[in-house]
Amino acid sequence: VKKMAKAIMADPNKADEVYKKWADKGYTLTQMSNFLKSKTAGKYDRVYNGYVIHLD
């Protein structure tokens, strides 16, 4: 998940494709939050927020 999150950060155009894969795998927002937690607070906030919007 972190590898794909980094791919989104490097190229935001990949976001919809990645979010669809995550949704197809049934990842919940709680799971995504836990996967994307980082020592650098807020590092993956943009990715998480994008997934929230995708699921909505």
Rank of each mutant, 00 (worst) to 15 (best):
17 E>R: 08
5 A>P: 01
19 Y>H: 03
52 V>F: 06
28 T>K: 02
23 A>W: 07
50 G>H: 04
24 D>S: 12
9 M>W: 05
54 H>A: 07
18 V>Y: 09
55 L>I: 08
3 K>Q: 12
7 A>S: 11
44 Y>E: 02
9 M>A: 04
2 K>P: 02
8 I>R: 01
54 H>G: 02
5 A>Q: 03
49 N>W: 15
41 A>F: 10
36 L>Q: 01
47 V>A: 05
3 K>C: 14
56 D>Y: 14
38 S>L: 06
14 K>V: 14
51 Y>V: 02
50 G>N: 03
6 K>P: 02
29 L>N: 04
55 L>Q: 03
50 G>S: 03
4 M>V: 04
31 Q>R: 05
16 D>P: 14
42 G>S: 05
47 V>G: 01
8 I>M: 07
4 M>D: 15
28 T>Q: 03
36 L>S: 00
37 K>G: 07
30 T>A: 13
34 N>S: 12
27 Y>D: 00
18 V>L: 06
35 F>Y: 09
7 A>D: 10
9 M>P: 01
47 V>W: 04
15 A>Y: 03
36 L>G: 03
34 N>Y: 13
15 A>I: 04
23 A>N: 06
23 A>D: 05
18 V>E: 02
4 M>E: 14
27 Y>N: 00
42 G>V: 04
9 M>N: 06
22 W>H: 00
37 K>M: 10
30 T>W: 11
19 Y>S: 01
14 K>D: 03
52 V>K: 15
20 K>R: 13
53 I>Q: 14
28 T>G: 05
22 W>A: 01
39 K>L: 08
49 N>S: 10
17 E>K: 08
41 A>M: 11
21 K>T: 14
48 Y>N: 02
7 A>R: 10
25 K>P: 01
17 E>A: 12
37 K>D: 09
36 L>A: 00
20 K>N: 08
39 K>E: 13
43 K>W: 08
31 Q>M: 14
17 E>W: 12
15 A>D: 03
56 D>V: 14
45 D>Q: 09
49 N>D: 14
23 A>Y: 09
52 V>H: 07
34 N>K: 13
32 M>Q: 01
30 T>V: 13
21 K>D: 13
13 N>Q: 11
33 S>R: 15
47 V>L: 03
51 Y>G: 01
56 D>S: 15
51 Y>H: 02
2 K>L: 12
4 M>G: 08
48 Y>F: 13
22 W>Q: 00
22 W>S: 00
56 D>C: 15
12 P>M: 07
24 D>T: 11
25 K>G: 06
50 G>E: 06
7 A>M: 15
37 K>I: 09
10 A>W: 09
28 T>D: 07
37 K>T: 10
18 V>N: 03
15 A>N: 03
31 Q>V: 07
47 V>C: 03
22 W>T: 01
10 A>R: 15
28 T>W: 04
21 K>N: 13
24 D>G: 10
53 I>K: 15
30 T>I: 13
51 Y>M: 02
46 R>S: 15
41 A>E: 13
20 K>S: 10
11 D>C: 12
33 S>D: 08
8 I>H: 01
23 A>M: 09
1 V>Y: 04
53 I>W: 09
35 F>E: 04
7 A>F: 07
39 K>M: 09
31 Q>E: 11
40 T>N: 09
44 Y>I: 03
37 K>Y: 10
42 G>P: 03
25 K>C: 15
37 K>W: 10
16 D>Q: 14
